[in-house]
């Protein structure tokens, strides 16, 4: 067999393995959650109670909490990550100033999530509490909003690192052509850079959205871990990943373990669906 053929085959095997891995994770989750699926059926998705003692399990509050925190954190992070990407990739491209900036952002990306969680609990929560007092809400400090704030700071570096690279890649002749027509810097960004880099920037957002959905430690420290549907984003709630991490180690009864694994299955499906939607959006936009 020629080298080419072997090389091709190795790549093919690698690809199949990855798909196989994904499928086997799905199957494992499905099999291990069968007790809970059989017992609760569809009502697991809409039931609002989570009671390990009386073995009544429902995922609805956690699904709401997961989507709320990740969507809010994405919305908070967009203006910041977009402007920093432009700052590094366009305005101060390849200067010492932007190099320093980039290093700091990379450091932000490697801070362990538990550190973010503790920082959120001891520094951010009191600030949120003051806000809550101002709006005469229960002064809990920890809330869906606090968790979203911490998450947005955690995902900003991911969006920036993708965004700035795409912006840097834009051909200079395009920009120079626009400038030669008398376009201002703002007009170049609006008419050339953003449309050109759109798909890359959106891909960056999706990457960070995926991270926000699955984040566990930081969220569990600041969300308040209340297993009810939050009536306001300034009230405590809970997310799927956080419940699993909290309860799995000490879960003893079969049905409890099975229900927790079904939560994991739901998280898996949610990320899968979101990715499909996202891919379609990218195709339409680009």
């Amino acid at each position: 067999m020629s080298f080419e053929k072997i090389y091709k085959r190795i790549i093919a095997i690698g690809g199949v393995l990855i798909i196989g891995l994904l499928l086997s994770i799905f199957i494992t989750l499905f099999i291990n959650s069968s007790i809970s699926i059989k017992k609760f059926g569809f009502s697991f998705l809409i039931n609002k109670t989570w009671d390990p003692v009386f073995e009544n399990f429902g995922a609805f509050p956690f699904i709401v909490g997961t989507l709320l925190t990740s969507i809010i954190s994405l919305i908070i992070s967009i203006p910041f990550s977009l402007s920093v990407s432009l700052f590094i990739g366009e305005y101060y491209k390849d200067t010492i100033f932007s190099k320093i900036f980039e290093t700091f952002i990379e450091i932000l990306a490697v801070i362990p999530s538990v550190v973010f969680g503790l920082w959120g609990l001891f520094y951010l929560a009191p600030i949120v509490r003051n806000l809550q007092i101002k709006f005469s809400l229960p002064p809990t400090g920890v809330s869906v909003f606090t968790a979203s704030l911490v998450l947005s700071i955690m995902i900003i570096p991911y969006t920036i690192s993708v965004g700035k690279e795409v912006i840097k890649l834009i051909p200079t002749d395009l920009k120079e052509a626009a400038f030669s027509f008398g376009a201002t810097h703002y007009e170049v960004i609006k008419k050339i850079i953003l449309p050109y880099a759109k798909s890359g920037i959106i891909a960056g957002f999706l990457l960070s959205f995926g991270r926000a959905i699955g984040e566990t430690m930081a969220v569990t420290m600041v969300i308040g871990n209340v297993n009810t549907i939050p009536r306001s984003i300034f009230l405590p709630g809970n997310t799927i990943a956080s419940v699993i991490a909290n309860e799995f180690l000490e879960a003893i009864t079969k049905i409890h373990i099975s229900a927790l694994i079904e939560l994991a299955l739901i998280l898996f499906v949610i990320t899968f669906i979101l990715n499909l939607i996202a891919n379609n959006i990218i195709k339409k936009v680009v």
Partner: peptide
């Protein structure tokens, strides 16, 4: 009831003794 995790009527949850 009693258990390692229960359905609390009120309150906020912190993770671990330190939480």
């Amino acid at each position: 009831g009693s258990g390692t995790s229960v359905n609390w009527p009120v309150g906020l949850g912190g993770k671990g003794n330190e939480g």
